[in-house]
């Protein structure tokens, strides 16, 4: 029976996928640790130890990406959790327009990031842009969204939230709908109001959804590249550069070793933050 079992579920089925995954994903990931310590031209390499990493953290134009990436990930993740939860509650309540609202909020998820980035960068134009024209009409002097070094990164983060909110909301809707009705009945018997319902039932019991949104949004934030590239290309100066955009710039400049060091740093940041976060959130997960 055992040999039949092995033949029926032969590892040959796994092999084609495993080969592609290994050669194209695992192997380059392992090699990146080596190449990050070289001066590299694809055909030739020279081992230089940790020099690339030292350069990365000493050059202000590079190390700023490290800080920006963390800010960007925390800001987008927090807003997606907060707004996603609120919209999730709203869209599971008794409201007539909910299927319309759900579709409208979800649609940006499916639109090309580059298209969204280009459209918003035009709308955020400091003098002619739609946003500032509208603000001027009600007497507010709008800032230079993408040109002001203090807010440019946050402006890009807002667009990221605009685009990714639908996904977070949809996860929350699924999470809230899976809460058993008995909890609400019990609350009604105890005479709780809608605030109690939100704070004592929905928030704790949609915990699995919260965990998914945090993990996905946080990892997505750490890795993001296209939106920043479409909107600011890292500018003004280097104030909106993320690790991923620095990798691209170094790659374009032909500094392959340095670009790979950036990749390794991103790898370390993601694993150092995402794996513990993942275990922590899953340990505290409640059973429904």
């Amino acid at each position: 029976m055992n040999s039949i079992f092995k033949r029926t579920y032969s590892y040959w089925f796994l092999l084609p996928a495993a080969i592609i995954y290994f050669i194209i994903f695992i192997l380059p990931t392992i090699m990146s640790f080596f190449f990050s310590m070289t001066r590299w031209t694809l055909s030739d390499w020279e081992f230089i130890g940790f020099e690339n990493f030292i350069t990365f953290f000493q050059e202000q134009s590079l190390s700023i990406g490290f800080k920006n990436t963390l800010i960007y990930a925390v800001v987008t993740c927090t807003l997606k959790v907060a707004l996603g939860l609120l919209l999730g509650v709203l869209l599971t309540s008794k409201i007539r327009t909910k299927s319309y609202l759900r579709s409208v909020i979800f649609f940006p998820t499916l639109v090309s990031t580059i298209a969204v980035g280009i459209a918003f960068s035009m709308m955020m134009h400091p003098t002619q842009g739609v946003i500032n024209t509208a603000l001027a009409a009600i007497g507010i002097d709008g800032p230079d969204w993408l040109g002001d070094t203090r807010i440019a990164l946050l402006s890009v983060a807002m667009v990221d939230v605009w685009k990714g909110l639908g996904f977070a909301t949809v996860i929350y809707i699924a999470g809230i709908l899976s809460i058993p009705a008995e909890y609400y009945e019990a609350l009604q018997i105890d005479g709780g109001n809608s605030w109690h319902k939100f704070w004592n039932i929905i928030v704790p019991l949609s915990r699995p959804a919260t965990n998914s949104v945090i993990i996905l949004a946080f990892i997505g934030g750490l890795r993001s590249f296209d939106l920043v590239w479409a909107m600011t290309k890292g500018g003004p100066g280097f104030t909106t550069d993320l690790i991923a955009s620095i990798i691209y710039k170094q790659y374009q400049g032909g500094f392959y070793g340095l670009a790979t060091a950036g990749n390794v740093i991103l790898f370390l940041v993601v694993t150092a933050l995402a794996f513990p976060l993942y275990t922590y959130l899953n340990r505290k997960e409640v059973d429904l």
Partner: peptide, 21 residues
């Protein structure tokens, strides 16, 4: 573990180009 890693880890760009090349 390898599958979970693939969901989390960003692909290493230039080494992938090197392999493809």
């Amino acid at each position: 573990f390898l599958i979970l890693a693939g969901l989390i880890i960003p692909p290493a760009i230039v080494p992938t180009i090197w392999v493809m090349d």
